[in-house]
Write a protein that binds this DNA or RNA. Structure first.
Length: 317
DNA sequence: TTGGATTTTCGGCACCGAGG
DNA sequence: CCTCGGTGCCGAAAATCCAA
C-alpha cells in the first residue's frame, strides 16, 4: 500500500459564469503527485500539464494564482491521457491524500465529463491533510491554507506555492509529520459518488464520533422518515441510545437531536441534508459524545429558537 | 367544522475562509 | 471571478393547533 499525495490546478471560464460549460465549471490544467510507501517515505513523483480543451484561455484570476504561460499549457497532454496515466501510476491499492476536500471532487467531475469516472469507483476513502493538520495542531475545526501549515511547522519553502507538484510535495511533508494514530483515526470519505443503495450506505467510526452517509431519497421527508437516518447509536459502543430530544431543525438543512446511551451517557446527533446534481437528497449524520451540560444547552437552544419565532410572530401581528 | 393564530419549513441571501 | 461548506437571518408559504 502506498500513499499518493496529489494536488490539482484548474481554470475556469474566462468570460464569466453565463458562458461556462455547466458540467465542467473547473477544468483541470495540471496534476502533481508524490508517492510515499507505507512508512511514508518518498518513492516517486508524477507530473503532467493538461492542455485545456474547454476553456483554452486562462481566467485572469487563475493566471494571477497559477504561474503558467500559454506555451506551457499548449505543450500539455489531453486530460484523458493525464488522468489514465495518473491512475495507472498511482496503482489500485493506494490511499489518496490531498489538502482539503475539493481536489477529489474536481478530479471526479472532470473524469465524469470525459466518461472516465468508471476508472475511479467511489465513495472514496482518503486522507484530508488539511483536516489532519487541524486535528494535530489546532482545534480540529480550523481549515488553514497550505502555506500556513508549512510556516507553522517551520518547513523550508523551496518552491513557489500554487503549482501542482510543489503543493503536492508540501502536502506530503506536512502529512509526514502527522502522528500515525491520528492519520488512522481520521480518514475522510469523498461522496461525489454518493451511496445509491442500502448496502452502499456508509457507517464510519472515529475517535469520539461516528458518521453515517445514507443512500438517496426523493424527498427530505422520506429521508427523515428512514429508520437508519433517525437511529441514534452510541458512537462509542454502537448500542441504541435512547432519544432525549427528538430531531429538530434549525434551518432547512440541519437537524439536531440528543440521546442517552446506558453505558456512555449523552450523545448528540447532527443530520445534514445534501442534494445531488440529479435533485435527490441524502443524509450525512454524525453522532458525537456529549454531556449532560451540553444536552441542556441544546435543549435551551431549541427552546430559544421556538421562543424567538413565537415573539416574531407576535410582533408582526 | 372552520378561520385565525401559531409553529415549522424552506429557499434565498450575505458573510467567512479555504480551494483554483 | 467561481466553488464549497458552514452559519445565521429573514420572510413567505405550508402545516398544525385550537377555540368558538
Amino acid at each position: 500500500m502506498n500513499y499518493v499525495v496529489f494536488d490539482l490546478e484548474w481554470n475556469q471560464c474566462p468570460y464569466g459564469k453565463h458562458r461556462e460549460v455547466k458540467a465542467l465549471p473547473f477544468e483541470i490544467i495540471e496534476i502533481g503527485a508524490v508517492k510515499l510507501n507505507k512508512d511514508r517515505e518518498y518513492v516517486g513523483r508524477f507530473h503532467r500539464i493538461v492542455r485545456p480543451a474547454v476553456y483554452t484561455k486562462l481566467h485572469h484570476r487563475t493566471r494571477e494564482i497559477v504561474h503558467m504561460d500559454q506555451e506551457t499549457l499548449d505543450q500539455g497532454v489531453s486530460f484523458q491521457e493525464a488522468a489514465r496515466e495518473f491512475l495507472a501510476w498511482a496503482g489500485a491499492d493506494s490511499q489518496f491524500c490531498t489538502w482539503g476536500t475539493i481536489d477529489l471532487v474536481e478530479l471526479q467531475r472532470n473524469m465524469k465529463y470525459y466518461g472516465l469516472l468508471h476508472l475511479l469507483k467511489g465513495p472514496l476513502h482518503y486522507y484530508d491533510v488539511q483536516k489532519l493538520f487541524a486535528v494535530s495542531y489546532e482545534d480540529m475545526k480550523s481549515r488553514r491554507s497550505l502555506e500556513y501549515g508549512i510556516d507553522y511547522l517551520k518547513l523550508e519553502k523551496k518552491q513557489d506555492f500554487h503549482r501542482a507538484l510543489s503543493d503536492a510535495w508540501y502536502t506530503a511533508e506536512i502529512f509526514q509529520t502527522i502522528d500515525m494514530d491520528v492519520v488512522l483515526a481520521y480518514d475522510s470519505i469523498d461522496v461525489y459518488q454518493n451511496p445509491k443503495t442500502k448496502d452502499e450506505e456508509i457507517h464510519a467510526v472515529y475517535n469520539g464520533y461516528s458518521k453515517f452517509i445514507s443512500r438517496e431519497f426523493s424527498t427530505k421527508e422520506e429521508a427523515m422518515a428512514d429508520r437508519e437516518v433517525l437511529a441514534t447509536h452510541c458512537c462509542l459502543c454502537g448500542r441504541n441510545a435512547r432519544k432525549k430530544l427528538r430531531w429538530f431543525s434549525v434551518n432547512s438543512k440541519n437537524y439536531y437531536c440528543v440521546a442517552y446511551c446506558p453505558v456512555h451517557g449523552y450523545v448528540k446527533g447532527k443530520a445534514r441534508m445534501k442534494h445531488t446534481d440529479e435533485g435527490k437528497v441524502y443524509v450525512v449524520k454524525t453522532i458525537k459524545v456529549s454531556s449532560e451540560q451540553e444536552a441542556q444547552e441544546i435543549r435551551e437552544k431549541r427552546d430559544e429558537l421556538r421562543e424567538k419565532r413565537r415573539k416574531k410572530r407576535r410582533g408582526e401581528a
